[in-house]
């Protein structure tokens, strides 16, 4: 067990080095004139020269790499061209809004995926199953930016049920910042009106963002459950006359958890991609909208910092999931 942990951590460190090398190559080696890119599209020759000097771009490549790693370790990702602030400050500021959106959408997606995936597996090849399979294929095929736009048109503009953009109504004073989550902070402040406002603003973007997660999870839960339901221990459970709840939830679903959790870790990449589009359409003040803005204004420092930070998070999440199950499932260590 300890050896496995050590080996898994060592691979992660190796991958971290690889990720740093790849972003370094992207940021400093491949562009013909990296200083030009880093200084931004509107910089003049002197500013470009200053950037060149400051970034040590006249040094040899290995020296530049060490300097790059040194800067990254200190959290120095340079200045954003559009906000004129250190990129890290921007990321820290915009992160909680994205986390709130992503977690809420995960909650919706996971619930939908598990409930309908289980039902579809129990009633395999029936009409419920067929509907579910088609809906999940649809969920994986709809472009998120398009769904976001149509949902906004329908529910906000035409029906007027939900607000069309942002985290709070314009002019509303945000609650004192405790967790950075609007729905929790407003509750902590005891302001129910603000809580309702925050929740209604959150629903539409979160539901749209949850679609691919729900679709992916539906397929995984359904397929895994189908495999489990044909196992002997389920037959035994049925023969003992256990209630359907005990058979399906306690016996079957529990065994379907590990592969689905791995899938959720891999799904993080999709969620971040989806958040970029959803935040852009719903003007959600998070990291996704910041990324979209950085891309459209060629804010190179910001793009590179986000690429690096998001990949590191992605790697750590998957590491945590792997390690968690080795702790939970004794069979894995035996391999």
């Amino acid at each position: 067990m300890r050896r496995y942990f050590a080996k898994r951590l060592a691979t992660t460190l190796l991958m971290l080095a690889g990720v740093l090398l790849l972003t370094f190559i992207l940021a400093r080696v491949l562009p013909g004139d990296p200083a030009r890119l880093l200084a931004g599209p509107r910089a003049n020759a002197e500013q470009v020269e200053a950037v060149k000097e400051a970034m040590g771009l006249n040094e040899s490549l290995p020296a530049q790499f060490f300097q790059y790693v040194h800067q990254v370790l200190q959290g120095d990702f340079g200045q954003s061209i559009s906000t004129r602030r250190p990129v890290l400050d921007d990321i820290v500021q915009f992160f909680p809004a994205t986390l709130e959106l992503v977690l809420f959408s995960l909650l919706i997606g996971v619930t939908l995926g598990f409930v309908f995936g289980t039902i579809a597996a129990i009633r395999a090849n029936g009409i419920t199953d067929a509907t579910g399979r088609f809906t999940s294929a649809l969920g994986l095929s709809l472009p998120d930016f398009w769904v976001a736009l149509l949902a906004q048109l329908l529910f906000a503009w035409v029906l007027g049920w939900l607000p069309f953009a942002g985290r709070l109504p314009t002019g509303a004073t945000p609650p004192p910042d405790v967790t950075g989550f609007m729905i929790i902070d407003s509750l902590l402040a005891g302001d129910m009106a603000l809580f309702t406002a925050a929740l209604t603003h959150l629903i539409l973007p979160a539901v749209v963002l949850s679609i691919p997660t729900a679709a992916l999870l539906f397929r995984m839960v359904r397929a895994t459950m189908l495999g489990i339901l044909s196992k002997d221990f389920i037959r035994t459970a049925r023969a003992k006359g256990l209630s359907p709840y005990r058979i399906y939830v306690k016996h079957a679903l529990r065994n379907a958890l590990p592969p689905t959790i791995t899938l959720l870790g891999l799904n993080f990449g999709f969620l971040i991609g989806g958040a970029v589009f959803v935040e852009l359409i719903f003007q959600w003040p998070g990291l996704g909208r910041y990324t979209a803005a950085a891309i459209s204004s060629t804010d190179y420092n910001a793009i590179m910092a986000i690429t690096l930070i998001v990949s590191i998070c992605y790697m750590l999440i998957n590491l945590a999931i792997d390690l968690a199950y080795t702790g939970l499932d004794p069979r894995i260590v035996l391999k």
Binding site: M15, M304, V310
Partner: peptide, 23 residues
Amino acid sequence: MRITDVFLAFPALILAAAISATF
């Protein structure tokens, strides 16, 4: 495979955006 793993460590859209932005 380690090189492959490094590429897989990036969320697809983010890496694609970074490469497109570079060129």
